[in-house]
């Protein structure tokens, strides 16, 4: 944002949070007056659809659900109102015109905000701010935040999720169903080998009870060795 020096009239660029300035023309130290009304800021972001899709995949993987397929990504700068909750913590609430799934963000993403200037968004879409929202009481700042809207398919259904640019925070209320973990190849091979080994060892027992006892002892011994080795590996790590 450009401001004029009160002494020489030269125009200087200022940044959000700046309280004083040395005029680049006459060198005077100037205090920057706070304007009435909330500041309008934008968080410039380098769009990266692939990273947003990866963030969604990661989020669903952690949740243990089916993986997303056929992901389609849309991007826009969405206005949020920064207010303080009853505890005095900042909360960013979406304005009218935000995607339907958008909810309040407990805290806006940390980043290098600038005074709002449409040119900072490049060619990306900017969701317009409703004037009624800007004049709502208690609004500290209006933040235009980079938001990815992802449409994907999982669990046999079309679903939607949002990913915040910069923080990669994922908003996905409609999660696919949880999926069972896939068996690992080393695990299966180990299980088959152990089964074969216990079968061989079990032949040492000539009765029902003896076979059970021999297999139980062999299994307990194998498990103890495995547990000890795991502990040693963890201690070395």
């Amino acid at each position: 944002m450009r401001v004029s020096c009160s002494l020489c009239g030269g125009e200087n660029e200022i940044l959000p949070g700046q309280k004083m300035l040395f005029c680049s023309f006459c060198g005077s130290a100037l205090a920057i007056e706070e304007r009435a009304g909330p500041e309008h800021l934008i968080l410039p972001h380098q769009r990266n659809d692939r990273l947003a899709a990866d963030a969604l995949r990661s989020h669903l993987s952690i949740a243990g659900t089916a993986a997303p397929r056929d992901i389609r990504v849309e991007f826009s700068y969405v206005p949020f109102l920064l207010v303080e909750n009853e505890k005095g913590d900042p909360v960013a609430c979406p304005c009218r015109g935000a995607p339907r799934e958008t909810g309040p963000i407990p805290a806006p993403p940390a980043g290098d905000y600038r005074f709002f200037d449409g040119s900072l968004a490049g060619d990306e879409k900017i969701v317009p701010l409703d004037p009624a929202d800007a004049e709502a009481p208690g609004v500290l700042r209006v933040l235009h935040l980079p938001l990815y809207r992802l449409l994907y398919r999982a669990g046999g259904k079309k679903r939607r999720a949002l990913v915040m640019g910069e923080s990669l925070y994922v908003y996905a209320d409609d999660l696919p169903p949880r999926r069972a973990p896939a068996p690992s190849a080393p695990g299966l091979v180990a299980a088959l080998a152990l089964t074969a080994a216990f079968l061989l060892v079990g032949r040492l027992g000539h009765s029902f009870a003896a076979r059970g006892l021999v297999i139980a002892v062999a299994a307990a011994a194998a498990w103890a060795v495995f547990a000890l080795r795991s502990r040693m590996v963890r201690a070395d790590g």
């Binding site: 695990g187 180990a190 299980a191 088959l192 152990l194 089964t195 074969a196 080994a197 216990f198 079968l199 060892v201 079990g202 032949r203 029902f208 076979r211 059970g212 297999i215 139980a216 062999a218 299994a219 307990a220 194998a222 498990w223 495995f226 547990a227 795991s230």
Partner: peptide
């Protein structure tokens, strides 16, 4: 990790019987 030993042991016992 426990299932890795219990399941083969039970399977071997049943198959051997």
């Amino acid at each position: 990790s426990r299932a890795l030993f219990i399941v083969p042991a039970v399977t071997a016992f049943l198959a051997g019987t």
